[in-house]
Amino acid sequence: MENKNKKSFLERMGESQVWKSIIRSGVPRSRRQRMQAILGSVFLHLHPARIPKHAVKIGYTWCMGGLSFFLFIVLTITGLLLMFYYRPTVEYAYTDIIDMAEQVPLGIMRELHRWGAHAMVLTVWLHMLRVFMTGSYKPPREFNWGVGVLLMTLTMFLSFTGYLLPWDQLAIWAITVGTNMARAHPFIGHEGPGASLLAIGDINLVHAGSDVRFALLGGRFVGEASLLRFYVLHCIGVPFITMILMAVHFWRIRKDGGISGPL
């Protein structure tokens, strides 16, 4: 009773000049302040201030889209840390992988990265399944479903490019099989249908040294150049495209009327 007028530490902190300069709405207590807390934050205003009731039910959304985004962030952070130790060369790659588990304290960074990647493929699939099961791809969300399919493809491609980096048996043979599919690409792969039509006289334009597989591998065989190319694609190329598409995906959720729901 005697403390009635005494303000708690948290309350006083919430009224301090520093706090108010960062979060202008103060401690979110009133309805207005709570809405301000969302609208005034650069990160949280990804959300609208108010959403339909069913949108907060785990049974409706399974939280899978959010977890996929969260995993993308986890993978970015852990991946960045792995880059401190890993050198993408045939000579060092394999030993660096062993070193980062054994010579670095709390060496589960690679585990977090690898299992996180597997988990992300799974969460993305489950998110896709949920969106299909609730019919949420229907107008006006057709375009965003398409963006989502591309994001799913990119997730799998990110995972695939990461597979080569440890430079172990699993890595090179998965990449060998994977890139040999590119060899069979119609017209631009040298063992694909139609490639032999692209010729001037006797000179084939599309051969083992000029087809799409060569561009992927940086050579005719999986080797030094392939490791570097997949490393760059894995760390910069594909994540960059993914981030752009993610921005579009999130933006369009809001623009298409927020989360889907029955009318």
């Binding site: 709570r34 959403i51 069913h54 939280c63 959010g66």
Partner: peptide
Amino acid sequence: EYNDPDDKVLVWPDLVYIEFIALILFMVFL
């Protein structure tokens, strides 16, 4: 899933907290 369109919930705290808990639990799992 149907609710009255006017009967909405606030994202803070209802959704933000759920997201936060889901994230922590998933991180623990990972």
